[in-house]
Amino acid sequence: MNPAARALALLPALTLAATFSAPAAAGALADRLAAAPSPAAVLASPDALPAPADALDRAADAALRDWRADPAGAAAVWSAAPLTTRARSPRLPVEAGAPHGAVHLARALWSPEAPAVRGAALAAAARLVTDWAAVAPRLLAEDDVELRRITADLLVDAPAALAAPALALAAADADPAVRAAAMRALGGHEAALAPGLLLGGTTDQHAVVREAALRSAGWVGLSAAAPAARAALSADEPAVRLAGAQALRRLDPAAFAAARPALAADPDPRLRQLAAAR
C-alpha cells in the first residue's frame, strides 16, 4: 500500500483516536497505527500477536471481546456504534479501523474468552484479508462448532488453492452443521475443485448435508450427481426433495421433466411450485 493510500485507510482510525478522551493516548494510537503490521501477517500469526501495549489497546480488545455486554465501550473504540445484525449477531465494522483493526480482530479471533465474537471477527477478517483461509485448517481444529461452521461457510469466497484442503477437513467434520457448510462453500467453486466431496455429501447420513450437497452440485453442474438428485426426489425430508429437484432440473432436464407429475402432487408447496414453473 502506498503512503497516500495507507494514510487514507488510517483516516477513520485516526479520527477515532482523536475523539478518544486523552489526546496523548490518541497520539500514541496514531503512532501505533502507522507502525501496524499487515493484516494478513497479523491474522496468520496467532502465536505471535503483539501484546496489548497500554490501557487504550487493552480497552480496544476488551470492547471487542465483551461486545455484547459493552456496546458503548466498543463504540468508543470503533468510532461509531458497533452494529447488531438483525439476527442479533455482532457485525464488526472492521473497514473503519483497518489495518489497526486487524490486530484487534486477530486477538478477538484467537481468544477463547468471547466465543460469540470469534465468528464475527473471522467474517470481518475474511473481508479484510484475502488469504485468510491459510488459517482455516487451524480454525477447523477448534472445539467451537459454530466457529468451525462459519469457517467452512466463509471458504465459499476463498482462493481455490487455500480453500481445497480446508474444505476437505470441513467435509469430514464430525458435526453435520460443519459438513453442510462445506457443501455450501463448494457451491461457490468450480466443480473440479472437489467433486468427490460433493458426491460424498449427497449420501451423507444427515439431511442437512445432503440438501446442501445436492444444491451445490446443481449450481456447479456436477453431472455425476444427477443420479443422487433423482434418488433424492423420494427422500422423506421436503428440503432434500426440493434440493434434489432443483439440482435435477439443472443436471438432467429430461429427467426433471419426467418427474414433474410426481412433483406436482408433492405435499410440499415449494415442490408443487417448482413443478409448475416454466
Partner: peptide
C-alpha cells in the same frame, strides 16, 4: 456470477410458494 443467479433461481420457489398461499 452464476452462483448468484442459481441461488436466486432456487429461492424464487420459496417466494412463489408463499405468494400462492
Amino acid at each position: 456470477d452464476t452462483r448468484l443467479r442459481a441461488y436466486n433461481d432456487d429461492l424464487q420457489v420459496n417466494l412463489d410458494a408463499n405468494l400462492a398461499l
